[in-house]
Simulated assay, not measured.
Amino acid sequence: MSQAPHTLIPVTILTGFLGSGKTTLLNRILKENHGLKIAVIENEFGEEGVDNDLLLQNEQENIVEMNNGCLCCTVRGDLVRILGDMAARKKKGEIKFDRVVIETTGMADPGPVAQTFFVDDVVAESYLLDAVITVVDAKHGMQQLDEHREIQQQVGFADRILLSKTDLASADEVQTLKKRLAKMNARAEQMISDHGNAPVAKLLDVKGFNLNSILDIAPDFLDEDKHTHNDEIQSFVFKSTKPFDGQKFEEFMGSVTQVYGPDMLRYKGILSIKGSDRRALFQGVHMLMGLDWGRKWDPADKKESKIVFIGRKLPKEFITQGLELCLAR
């Protein structure tokens, strides 16, 4: 008799600068009666953690059960070890949880945490990275983006951007910030999350790291804007109606990631490849990239390759020209 397929545990990385409202959002998620057993891993470095009044403390195990059945674990050690232990205990039936939310410290670059789910075999066997959610303070966001590289990286990695404290900012301030964030990350949907009021359903099962998910790009992010900022993190889109030569594309992108990988936060695309009637689905994080085949092109489809790049001071012209040379002749 064949075994039932192994179901991977979905993981959400919750990030955002100090004081942006991550913990408020997390407390709301944990208080809500959504029927989900969520295991929260807090990557703590002296920040104020989850509201302790909510917790039923179990000192011995360092895993805390919330009063609605969720679990909470404070990590000061090795994230890989904690994830491995939790998966093993779940398998034995010692603890129950449906999904994991990892709250990173406010000064953290979420990149290394995201890479854990692709690099470590033990983690990859049990978990599936669903999305990076970034909380941005609408009142202080512009200033923080000017002054702190970490928040720029958090924005660049995001699949969803939640704007908090919009009630403390003017409509113009919020709009200006939204435009700036869209230029930095053209593919992250933006939502309002004042006082932790965010639609929980829209934060889970985002499938931001799923090759088959739709490639969302903010349609007007390239519109000229009088508020220009020389942000380190920028996004740009490559488009072509000509198909790629598959081998040339893989060789070129392989060389690009070798040189610029550390500065390439996220890149993702749908490609038309010469000789194939299927869409090629492509994405990467830093130097790790993958290409897979998606569904067939419909006769009504416009066969257009579209790739969005998000990174730190990437050589847009070099990458664009290189991709042009990879198009089939």
Rank of each mutant, 00 (worst) to 15 (best):
K239P: 05
G322R: 01
V75S: 15
D223Y: 11
M1N: 05
A171I: 12
E324L: 14
D120Q: 12
V80M: 04
A39V: 10
M287C: 12
I102Y: 02
S164E: 09
S20V: 03
Y267H: 09
E125V: 04
T257F: 13
I151G: 05
I13S: 07
M253Y: 10
D130Q: 07
T74H: 13
C70S: 15
G69W: 03
D109G: 03
M191Y: 13
N58M: 10
S2P: 06
R295Q: 07
D277H: 10
S235R: 06
R76S: 15
D225Y: 08
R266C: 01
P299Q: 13
G311E: 00
Q152F: 07
L83T: 00
D78E: 07
L145G: 04
F117Q: 02
N43I: 05
K226D: 15
E232C: 11
R266H: 04
P5D: 13
F157R: 02
G284W: 03
G208A: 05
K96G: 10
L222D: 02
K313P: 05
G111Q: 04
N27P: 10
R149P: 12
L204M: 14
R180V: 11
T74V: 13
A4C: 10
G284I: 06
F249E: 08
C326K: 00
V75D: 09
S272E: 11
K306G: 07
N43F: 02
K242V: 04
L36H: 14
V155F: 07
N52W: 12
P299T: 03
G77H: 02
S235W: 03
L129I: 07
